[in-house]
Design a protein around this nucleic acid. Structure first.
Length: 503
RNA sequence: CGGGGCGUAGCUCAGUUUGGCUAGAGCGCAUGGUUUGGGACCAUGAAGUCGCAGGUUCGAAUCCUGUCGCCCCGACCA
């Protein structure tokens, strides 16, 4: 029997869960709020990591690793941050268990920590505490460091990939001699995120600062990339923060400038997480299953040999292996960061071809190659691309000799088609509204991104979010200078901001 | 923390109202055979301390008490 995926228009969040489950990306663990990332899901994350890590290195950053545990007192040194994260911190209070005969283990009350340790919700404090020792002179700057790690934020309600108590991410932490340089870094990283989202994930994003109410605790300002999912809700996909001298002051990080004077260093921090995998799913996938942008697909093409008799099998499988080898030996392509093409030959005997077609479709493999006795007779194969429906997707009689080139061409074509389609969807679901009444109406139907005038105050923003559940997602760099009046208070506004319901 | 629901095979669940026979089904899994160009079929088989603890009873998955856990809605979520 077919395992059915709930249709998107019937129940979008159930559809999302079905995709995650049937594509084998992740599952809930027995630990509340924590997920198990399964091999196929982790392979996508590894590809995200690989591409991003390259981009960080290319912009002069290096990787390092800081502790999982943070002394409680560190958190309190930067007040805004303490306030922002206090409610979702896991705390380690003891360092030992003791075994009780027949009763398992219990916490040893003798082993109470003198100072409790927080499990990092983010690492600014421990890192700036360390930077104090690393930074003495302007010659030590800039310090451009990134770490790949896990963090814990004790969430009340979790959703696979989108919000879990523990998640994987990267966090960059840089120190600079001047404000201008730190602000430039903040912008530079946002551009890295934007191009990664659009060129690798095929996920178009808005870029710009967050409102005061939505910024990171401890930041002077926060820049973000913001994407639209297929249910028209917004997803914050990455953030880059200008931290000013807040952490340098909190942790007493000073350097001597060329004039010999002591100054506090300027900071940035920035991160993206496994939430991106959720964004990837919700941007491209359809009612048949996962759809992946080829540049991030763990398997680019799967070859399904079709056979009945033993002698057919031998011939068809040999041809399949040969084709796979031909694709793998194509010259390294900058489009893939010179990584090899990943080709799978599915020669399992216990499943029929139809079953395999469906399985790889659900898993989002961009291209399927069908290779049977009929094809072999004419030295050809059938190609099917994942991003188009039914017969449209099929290309019959592709000569085996030219198939490798054809496949890589198709992959590149799919990549750009996917981002075009996603951009068209976002643009079709973006509108301008001019009155609060219209805003409330359009937010329910049709929904999407609403560009509206806002007076710039936190009070008005809070009022809107309480009354409508919509928040300011971004104050786009791309917005026009357009004097107007706040849709709620009528006070002057210098341009529109983007409102939406968000994940 | 408030409201609601649920714990029975790896998964989804029936059985509980009205206590009783060897605790069931579908999917999945194993073995064998027939199949194989869009989710095949037949046969056989393995698999469950009925969340846990206590109580009532001749007898408890079923009734009572306690307890643990999970899910949904709300509150919360830079």
């Amino acid at each position: 029997m077919a395992e059915k995926i709930t249709k998107r228009d019937k129940d979008y969040s159930q559809w999302y869960l079905d995709i995650v489950q049937h594509a084998g990306l992740a599952e809930n663990s027995d630990v509340r709020g924590c997920m198990v990332i399964k091999p196929h899901g982790f392979a996508i994350w590894e590809n995200i990591q690989r591409a991003l890590d390259r981009m960080f290195k290319d912009t002069g950053h290096v990787n390092a690793y800081f502790p999982l545990f943070i002394p409680k007192s560190f958190l309190t040194k930067e007040e805004e941050m303490a306030e922002g994260f206090a409610k979702e911190c896991a705390v380690v209070t003891h360092y030992r268990l003791k075994t009780m005969a027949g009763k398992g283990v219990q916490v040893d009350p003798e082993a109470k920590l003198e100072e409790e340790l927080i499990i990092r919700p983010t690492s600014e404090t421990i890192i700036w505490n360390t930077y104090r020792n690393w930074i003495q002179s302007y010659r030590d700057l800039p310090l451009l460091i990134n770490q790949w790690c896990n963090v814990v934020r004790w969430e009340m309600r979790t959703r696979l990939f989108l919000r879990t108590a523990e998640f994987l991410w990267q966090e960059g932490h840089t120190a600079h001699a001047t404000q201008a340089e730190a602000e430039e870094e903040t912008r530079k990283i946002l551009e890295v995120y934007r191009s990664f989202a659009e060129d690798w994930m095929a996920m178009p994003v808005l870029t710009g600062p967050k409102s005061e109410g939505q910024k990171f605790p401890g930041a002077v300002y926060t820049l973000c990339i913001e994407a639209m999912m297929q249910d028209k809700r917004a997803l914050q996909a990455g953030t880059s923060h200008f931290l000013g001298q807040n952490f340098a002051k909190a942790f007493d990080v000073k350097f001597q400038n060329q004039a010999g004077q002591l100054e506090h260093a300027w900071a940035t921090s920035w991160g993206v997480s496994t939430r991106l995998v959720g964004g990837l799913i919700m941007t491209h996938s359809d009612d048949q299953g996962l759809v992946l942008p080829p540049r991030l697909a763990p398997i680019h093409a799967v070859i399904v040999p079709i056979f009945r008799k033993a002698e057919e099998k031998a011939a068809v499988c040999a041809a399949a292996q040969q084709l796979a080898a031909a694709i793998r030996s194509l010259p390294p392509d900058p489009w893939l960061n010179y990584e090899p093409w990943s080709i799978k030959v599915d020669d399992r005997e216990q499943y029929q071809p139809g079953f395999k077609f469906n399985e790889w479709e659900v898993k989002g493999v961009p291209i399927r190659v069908e290779l049977g006795p009929k094809d072999l007779a004419s030295n050809a194969c059938v190609l099917a691309r994942r991003d188009l429906p039914g017969k449209e997707a099929k290309e019959m009689g592709v000569p085996l000799a030219s198939a490798p080139e054809r496949i890589t061409t198709l992959l590149k074509e799919m990549q750009s088609k996917l981002v075009e389609r996603a951009r068209a969807f976002r643009d079709a679901n973006t509108l301008e509204v001019n009155s609060y009444d219209d805003f409330k109406k359009k937010l329910e139907e049709p929904g999407g991104f609403l560009w509206a005038h806002w007076d710039g105050t936190r009070e008005t923003e809070n009022q809107i979010s309480q009354e409508t559940k919509a928040t300011i997602r971004c104050i786009p760099f791309s917005r026009a200078k357009e004097p107007g009046k706040c849709m709620v208070t009528g006070k002057p506004s210098e341009g529109r901001v983007v409102f939406a319901k968000a994940y």
